[in-house]
Design a protein around this nucleic acid. Structure first.
Lengths: 261, 261
DNA sequence: GAGTGGTCTAGACCACTTC
DNA sequence: AAGTGGTCTAGACCACTCC
């Protein structure tokens, strides 16, 4: 793999620009120009360090930077690759991951990691609005786009509303299962999200190394009767999605002149 | 600063646990236990490397890890500090940053970086639903919580609906200004967000180093007449907020048995 | 077996902050 | 002047993947 640095780039680099940012800029340029296609491999760290006359540590730092920006991803000890575009995700429309991915012209996948009954905790009972004696199901799955794992999810369900669910095939639509077997239609959801770092367990499920940036999305969904059916915790690759949501701004009483925005 | 590693910790560490994760675990424990209070400084990198018998590079890597998890933040060449809790932010309720921060028992702040008319671009006209001849205002501000910058925002407004806005004091509530001076009530918003890395300019405005993780939030807000008034782009510190939103799930026609969720 | 990234050492100089 | 993080060098060994 040959790497060439253009004169334009050399001129753009301030003498005080850290080397790792120069490498970053060079690679970002190749990616934006399409010279490096989606999912194609970047030059090896040792090649980059030779081309830029820097050490591998510095080349590695440049790649970390690009990873944080969501431009590239890595496959453990196989190399660095150009990230595909983000999936648009609207929690009030895209109840179905699979349908959303398909509509984007890409290939969805699901792997079930586990299914079992779990002991309820005060925290879990509060999230599900469940009683002390309610049975709680837990379904753990990984979702993929074009064979690349993008999120791991832990779905807690109140067994009261879907008895026997764990015996059904869970590689398919949970929403469909709830509707067809139990007459449940999800109507409202309370969604929370924040940036985080992936733990070792989550990273392993996604086939990446621990500590990478991620986005945690929690969602409590209730049905047409106002019962909370499921509480879902999703850990997304930070570079895999773009959240869209339309909201009505509540017309709250305002203290005129309270001096803020 | 003395650093001591407990026997429990030593036992918990697998022989193959990387050193930088051991340091991470140790510090995370101190933070969660409250031994290290919010906004207090961590031991210097050189002290950590001595205490753990590792090099500074490895100690630095542990701190980077904690930063990505949102547990700590850094002040340029001054040290590493324990992060305060995240601000809860609900785009359909918290139209006011200041009011939201105040309600959380913390102190909000605003600094105006710039205010000017800007040339419209096709992209901007589309976002604002504006015509070729519409004048566009740009307001750039930094918002602070307890004197710590947490976001930088670029607000584009269609001057047609708020002529002369730039001559008003902009350190206060834009929402209030729109309502009191122009009779505008924001009623709907279209919100997009995704994890990103902060650019050099954004990082400088937030007083942090470039390339740190961040969350980009874009919002187009329209008034009681359905006119798009403003298009806002916010770049948040990734550790500063937690987004909450309640959504109604659209009852879309479903293809029964289409095999997804 | 060759190639790749994962991790680490033992230093170094620099820019900036604090005193 | 002393202390801090920011960046970098020139190596090294390891675990894993690919062929």
């Amino acid at each position: 793999m040959s790497i060439s640095i253009s004169e334009n780039e050399r001129r753009a680099w301030d003498r005080r620009t850290p080397y790792y940012l120069r490498v970053r800029d060079h690679l970002a340029g190749l990616i934006e120009a399409g010279t490096l296609a989606v999912d194609s491999r970047l030059p090896a760290e040792r090649d980059l360090s030779e081309a830029f006359q820097i050490t591998r540590v510095t080349a590695h730092q440049a790649l970390i930077q690009l990873e944080m920006e969501g431009l590239i991803y890595r496959l453990n000890r196989r190399g660095w690759f150009v990230s595909p575009p983000r999936l648009r995700y609207n929690p009030s429309v895209n109840v179905s991951f699979t349908r959303n991915v398909t509509a984007s012209g890409r290939m969805p996948g699901t792997a079930v990691l586990g299914r079992r009954e779990v002991a309820s905790t005060p925290w879990l009972r509060e999230k599900l609005g469940a009683g002390h004696d309610d049975t709680i199901y837990l379904v753990e799955r990984v979702r993929l786009i074009d064979d690349r794992p993008v999120l791991v999810e832990h779905i807690h369900l109140n067994a009261k509303y879907c008895p026997g669910l764990l015996t059904l095939p869970l590689e398919v639509s949970l929403t469909d299962i709830l509707e067809q077997h139990f007459g449940i239609q999800l109507r409202r959801a309370s969604v929370q999200l924040h940036p985080t770092a992936l733990t070792a367990a989550q990273a392993e499920a996604l086939g990446v190394s621990a500590g990478l940036p991620g986005l945690k999305i929690s969602r409590a969904a209730s049905d047409q009767n106002g019962n909370i059916i499921e509480f879902d915790q999703e850990y997304w690759r930070h570079d895999a999605l773009e959240v869209h949501v339309d909201v009505a701004v509540d017309a709250l009483p305002r203290h005129v002149g309270s001096g803020d925005d």
